[in-house]
C-alpha cells in the first residue's frame, strides 16, 4: 500500500510523516515518533490506556486511524509538562500516590485534564463517571480520584 505524507500537530509541534492508511494514531505516536508515553494495552477500546486528546477531547488512539487526524491538534502525555514544570494534575498524582505501576497513568491524566477543562469544579461522582473508561488495576481508584479533585482545587486556586 502506498504511503502518503501527512501533517500532524502533536504537542504543539508540527510533524510530517509518511503513513499508510492502516496506521493507527497509537502506532504513529509510539512507532514512528517514539512518543511512548501513550500506552498500548487492550487494543479494543476497553481500557483507556491509549487515550490522547484530539482537539482537547479524549479519544482512543488504538481505534483511531492516523490519517483521520491529519492537521488536528493532538496532545499526548509528553506535551503536558512545561519543561521540568509538571502540570498540576501530574503533581497531584505524585503527591497523592495515584501512580503505582504507571501504565494507566498517561491516559488517566489526559482524561482528567479534559474533565477539568470542561468542568473545573467536579464532584467526586463526576470524576468517577468521567474516568470510567480508564482502567487501573493497581490503585483501586481512591487515590486517583483524590488526586484529580486536589488538582482541580489547585488549578482553581491558580497554583
Amino acid at each position: 500500500m502506498q504511503k502518503q505524507i501527512a501533517r500532524f500537530i502533536i504537542n504543539g509541534r508540527p510533524y510530517e510523516v509518511a503513513i499508510e492508511p492502516r496506521m493507527t494514531l497509537l502506532e504513529l505516536l509510539r512507532d514512528e515518533l517514539g512518543l511512548t508515553g501513550t500506552k498500548y494495552s487492550c487494543g479494543a477500546g476497553e481500557c483507556g490506556a491509549c487515550t490522547v486528546l484530539v482537539e482537547g477531547k479524549p479519544v482512543l488512539s488504538c481505534l483511531t486511524l492516523a490519517i483521520r487526524v491529519r492537521e488536528k491538534n493532538i496532545l499526548t502525555i509528553e506535551g503536558l509538562a512545561k519543561g521540568t514544570d509538571l502540570h498540576p494534575i501530574q503533581k497531584a498524582f505524585i503527591e497523592h500516590g495515584a501512580i503505582q505501576c504507571g501504565f494507566c497513568t498517561p491516559g488517566m491524566i489526559l482524561t482528567a485534564k479534559a474533565l477539568l477543562d470542561e468542568n473545573p469544579n467536579p464532584t467526586k461522582e463526576e470524576v468517577k463517571e468521567y474516568l470510567a473508561g480508564n482502567l487501573c488495576r493497581c490503585t483501586g481508584y481512591v487515590k486517583i480520584i483524590e488526586a484529580v479533585l486536589a488538582a482541580a482545587k489547585a488549578i482553581r486556586e491558580g497554583k
Binding site: G45, T51, P58, L60, L63, T111, L115, Y130, G133
Partner: peptide, 9 residues
C-alpha cells in the same frame, strides 16, 4: 454509555 472516549469518537 460510560466511556467518554467512546462517546467522543
Amino acid at each position: 454509555i460510560a466511556s467518554i472516549q467512546v462517546k467522543n469518537m
